[in-house]
Structures are given as structure tokens and as C-alpha cells.
Design a binder for these strands. Structure first.
Lengths: 358, 358
DNA sequence: TCGGTTTGCTAAATCGGATTAGCAATGCGG
DNA sequence: CCGCATTGCTAATCCGATTTAGCAAACCGA
């Protein structure tokens, strides 16, 4: 049916040399092994004519390297953000000629085990273990068969795996500074978590804790006292709406820091219900830069989760890890164990923050 | 470092048999080739003890089948919907022990070529060519090396590849029926496309054409005349807002069919600007079931794009295709060439449609 | 002219399985 | 007791590359 793939043997035959020679030339080791210019040219020409491409499966068997990495995450379909993370990883991998296997565990450890097995069976060169919401995860056993990186996740127990995470503490600082820069010092409320360091939503991911730390730090240093805060059980619009409504029944805030954009959407709805204008009456800052943030009216100022960059960074770190796998030089290697890489979260200044009334 | 993988040879040695025998037993062909019960048990036991798993790379080299399929799409990060499509494909593949390579072309034919090459180099057993917005695509040359399926896309030229698409015409009918069922017969406006069969957004995908056909068909049969329609250059909130505002400046509609949820979001905003309530003053139906549809107030009634099912279906069709690849029995095979599979789009009845005023 | 290098290339082994061909031992009918 | 079929297993080859070991020819100095 379909014409058989061109193999190295075909190239060798056309060039009139042995497969060994052809391999040597094509892998660039021709020079060092003293293959003549003439033969080199013949092989190169034959390969070009036949459009030869090495069979990676074969190479994988012989050399153990498949130019493939496995991307295992708990969920992939949560939001466009998840897609961005994969996209970043995909592009970074492609730039190095690598392909990605994608797997989804749905948080099921058994599924995860199966998936990792399936990937090892296919001899992946490295693994990315990703979480779609920043959180701590239990690192499955049997890691170590291949280099691995945690993405958007921290190991629950001590682990030698490096991790890549958004810089949430700094994000918290930035959100707070956005309000300070606009002159807000009073009537600032938090929606989603706080005011105390321990006032967090149940099941709390890393984001709540760290954003809160950053916010408290900046306000603390500026001598600004947060007027109030509402924990939300879940960071969904309806909870943001309820929390904000509760707040409005008791008074008039001047500014809100919502812990994510979905909560902010709910807050917008509550403010609208009370006839309050954003940003004229109340300024709003948020986190995530979910697609809706740019669709809301007025457009929401938010500190963006850099999903794309996270994905890229994970691949970068993974390659570094793969590079030094046989590295017996302890000196540098050991020091880097379990390193945590933080990716900055940029502020998206839009329309939801106005200068404080004098 | 890491303990070497267990190979078939290891199992054979422990069981005290030849690799051949071990292979026979483990591939289930032991019976037919008269391997004794005793030996069979020894091999099985050894394999279990060592936790033997066949190296798929090796199998791939020998048999040509890698239990892997390639999923190539134009974009993966457009929305959560894209993720759902991948998720559906992923799960359907996993159920059969297959893994997915993911690739993104960004609409670049050169990138697509490279990607398909990379996948062929890894000997994928089949390919899914996906589009994130339903549209016609140019089928790249060199398909035919492996079975392939078009997902959410139709071939621009005649092609033997089967395709899997949402049933948009029926979706159009359903949206129209939702309004008819609520008693609406007058003041119905379309936002996004129409009223004529040719009044479509530029770059128009398949969705606009087919939804419009379905809508016109049902209204036509019911003897209902559409009161008006606005084409939107792009189906984004701001265009929906502008179109609806233009409409409202000229009169008072009773019901809107928006061509997708983002357009509907804009329409909501415009209605709000004019002090009109949904659904009290104006009913709204839409398409896609984008996540925001459930977040809007009131929650949006919409005809859902079944992304998850589309992904699954594509894999199902692909396996059917792979099953009959060597199939020389022309009779059935030839008849199915280029078959189009339609996946139903379910209506999500929510809060944005009310009974028409008597 | 002969032994030792250098040059330039190739045969053969290897990776981990699947598959084909075939071999030794046993059973059985005549 | 011989010939042939059946039973039960294994040796050898193959998939498509990489890599090690090594061979023949040319060259070089004594």
C-alpha cells in the first residue's frame, strides 16, 4: 500500500557505502572518524534525494532516548489556562525536537500509576508532573526512572524533584501596591480569604496562602489597615457575589482585592446590585487574568497567572535536569536538589482601579 | 543508577525457558502453540514477580505498532472547550491502552508538516487532525501513511478521510425551537449572522452557515418571520454589544438568538445599558455552552458544543479506520470513504428564556 | 623490501521483543 | 521394531538504527 519508509540501508545502498558509514556521516561523526569528503557528499546527497528521516522508534531502542517527554497533569480541561500551560510546554519542547505525551489523572493515584507506567513503557526521556491549580502533591513512587519536574505544584514530602511555580507572594504584593499607588489607604476589603494569615478557603491551595502573605506584607509596611475580609468556601462567582453582598449590607468599601477573577465576577454583580460603580465608587483588583477579566465591564485589573511561561519554564528545567543525569560531579548537582523556580506574575492594568477620592 | 528495566530475557531466565517461549505465553499464543500448563504457569509467575512490562519501543520496532496516536490541532489554548476535546480523545484512547501525542500548528502549514513528520518518525498508529473552531481545512499531503480522522473540520477538497463534527444544523433548529416552545413568534432577532443565508461573518466557519440554516428552517416551517438580524464581524463580546445596542436604538426585541455565548455576553451588557431585563423583557438563546454561560446572570440558555464527545468520537472513528486498514474487501470499505459523523449538540435550558407575553 | 602507521571504510553485535522454521522426544499404528 | 505424526519447546532472523572492533590498502621510514 503506502510506500515503505526510507531506511538508512536504502541511503547506504544508493550512496554505495555500508550502513555504518551512512550512519556515521549522518550523525555528524564522519569527520572525527575520517570519512572522506567524497563519501560524505555521496551519503548526504542520497539522504536528501530520498528524503531520509531516521526512525525514532529504532533510535529509541538502540540508544534509549526517544526525544519525547511525558506531561502528566491532574486535569487538563479546567480552563483556557490549562491549555496555555500545555502550549508553553509544547512549544519549548518542539524547539528542541521533542514531542509531548499528554496524560490526565483526574486526581486518581491508580490512574496516575498506570499513566506513568505507560509512559515509561514508551521510554520517555523526562516527565512533567503538573497540577492545574497550584497545590502540594504527593510525588508518586518510582519517579527516578526518568528525570522529572513538578509544575505548579510542591511536593508534599521532601523530594529531590525541582518544581516550577508562579510567584504568588510577589503577586500579592503587586496587587496591594496597585491600590496603594492609586492612593487607596482606607476601606480596602479582601474577598476570598483573610484578613488573618490562617483565614483560608477549605482545601486551600498554595495560592491563597501566598497571595495573602504578599498582600499583608505590603499593607503592613505601608501602615495601611485592611478594613475587612471574607473567606469564600470556593472561589466561584456565586461565593464572590455572596461575600460581597454581605460586605455591602454592612457598609461601603472603597476598594476590593478579590482572590481570583471568578470571585471578582461575583463581586461585580453584587456591586451592580447595590448600584455601585466600578471603579468610580469601588476599585477592584484581582488575580489570574482569566479570559473573562478582559470581557468584564469595566475591564478587570488583575495579576496574571503566567501559565504559558510556567509550561515553558518546566520544560527548560526538565532539560537542565536531563542534561546532568549521569552527572557524578556531586558539587553542583547535590546543591540544586529540590530547587523551587518562581515565575513572575505580571500585573494587567485595565479599567477597574481609579484614584482614591481625596 | 536506576535499576535496569526488566526484559523478556529476564523473565525467561527466571522461568527457565527460552525467550521465545516466554514471548509466546505472554502474548497469549501459548495455547495454540502447545506450551504446557506447567511452563505457562512458570512464565506467568516469573513475569508477575519481576513486574515485567513489555518495552513498547521494542514492540514498535518489530511490529510497527506503537499504541500511540497523534493529535494535531491548530490551537489548543483557545478555551476550556479545546481542553475538553483533548480530554475526550485522551480518555477514549486510554481505554484502549493508547497514548496521545499532542501537537499544535498555529495554522502554519510548515509547522504542520514538521509536526506530522515528527509523528510519523515516531510511528504513530493513527492521526487526528483537529480544528478548534469548526471549519474547512486543507488536508496536508502525505496523509495515508497512517489512518487519519478530521475532527471539528471538513476537508477543503474531496478527501477520503472521515470527519467528526458537531451537528450544527440541528443545533440551529433546537435554538429556534426553544423560542417557539416558549411561545415566541414575534420580535425575534439574530445577533451574529443572518437574516439571509449569505449574511455571515468574514472568515466564516462552518458554524455560522449551518446554525443559520437550522434556525431558518424551523422558523420557516412555523411560519414565523425573523424580525431582524445583525452580522458581527467577529463573535466577541464587544461586537455583540455593539450589534445589540444598534438594534435597541431602533426598537424593542422580544427575543434574541445569539450565535455564541461571547456574543450573548455582549448582548446582556447592551440590554442592561437600556434597562431591559433578561428574560422578563427579552429572552436570549445562544450556542456553545462556554463556561461563562453558567456564570452570567441570569444563567444563559445555550446549545452546547459537545467537545468532550467530539474528542471521544474522533478516537472511535479512528480505531474503526485503523481496524480496516489492510481491508481489501472493497464492498463496505469504499462506501464509507469520506464519511461525515455528526455529534448531537444538547440544549442547556437555564434562565434566560421566558414565556412570550400573550 | 619489510614491519609499523595511518587512512578509510565495513562486519558484526546490540537494543528488546515477535515470528518463522525446525528440532528432539514421545506416542501410535502396523 | 520401524516409520510417521504429534507434542513441546528453542534457535535464528528480523525490525532500523548505533557503536565497537577490526580489516585492507596506502604510506613511511629503515
Amino acid at each position: 500500500m503506502s510506500p515503505r519508509r526510507v531506511t538508512l540501508a536504502d541511503v547506504a545502498k544508493i550512496a554505495g557505502v555500508s550502513p555504518t558509514t551512512a550512519s556515521l556521516v549522518l550523525s555528524g561523526r564522519g569527520r572525527e572518524l575520517r570519512i572522506s569528503q567524497d563519501v560524505e557528499q555521496r551519503v548526504l546527497k542520497a539522504a536528501a534525494e530520498l528524503q531520509y528521516r531516521p526512525n525514532i522508534v529504532s533510535v529509541g531502542l538502540r540508544t534509549g532516548t526517544t526525544r519525547t517527554i511525558g506531561f502528566v497533569s491532574d486535569t487538563i480541561a479546567t480552563s483556557r489556562l490549562a491549555g496555555d500551560m500545555i502550549k508553553g510546554a509544547l512549544e519549548a519542547a518542539r524547539e528542541r525536537g521533542f514531542m509531548l505525551f499528554i496524560g490526565e489523572t483526574e486526581g486518581d493515584p491508580e490512574l496516575e500509576r498506570l499513566l506513568l507506567q505507560a509512559m515509561h513503557d514508551r521510554q520517555v526521556d523526562g516527565l512533567i508532573l503538573a497540577a492545574m491549580y497550584t497545590r502540594t502533591i504527593r510525588v508518586p513512587k518510582g519517579m527516578g526512572a526518568a528525570p522529572a519536574v513538578l509544575l505548579n505544584a510542591l511536593p508534599k514530602q521532601r523530594s529531590p524533584l525541582p518544581s516550577v511555580l508562579p510567584d504568588e507572594v510577589e503577586a500579592g504584593r503587586r496587587a496591594a501596591r496597585v491600590l496603594l499607588d492609586a492612593g487607596h489607604r482606607e476601606g480596602i476589603h479582601l474577598i476570598g480569604a483573610g484578613p488573618g494569615r490562617r483565614d483560608l478557603p477549605r482545601g486551600g491551595g498554595v495560592a491563597a496562602v501566598e497571595r495573602l502573605i504578599g498582600i499583608r506584607e505590603v499593607f503592613g509596611e505601608a501602615g495601611v489597615k485592611v478594613a475587612g475580609a471574607h473567606v469564600c468556601a470556593d472561589w466561584q462567582p456565586e461565593y464572590g457575589l455572596a461575600a460581597t453582598r454581605a460586605l455591602l449590607e454592612g457598609g461601603r468599601p472603597r476598594a476590593l482585592i478579590c482572590f481570583n477573577d471568578r470571585v471578582a465576577l461575583g463581586a461585580y454583580q453584587a456591586l451592580d446590585d447595590f448600584g455601585l460603580k466600578v471603579p468610580g465608587d469601588v476599585s477592584v483588583v484581582s488575580f489570574d487574568d482569566h479570559p473573562i477579566a478582559a470581557w468584564m465591564r469595566p475591564k478587570l485589573t488583575t495579576v496574571a497567572l503566567p501559565h504559558y511561561e510556567l509550561g515553558r519554564k518546566a520544560v527548560d528545567v526538565l532539560f537542565a535536569e536531563m542534561g546532568r543525569d549521569g552527572d557524578d560531579a556531586v558539587g553542583e548537582g547535590a546543591a540544586r536538589e529540590g530547587e523551587v523556580h518562581r515565575v513572575p506574575m505580571p500585573v494587567r492594568l485595565r479599567e477597574s482601579v481609579a484614584a482614591a477620592a481625596p
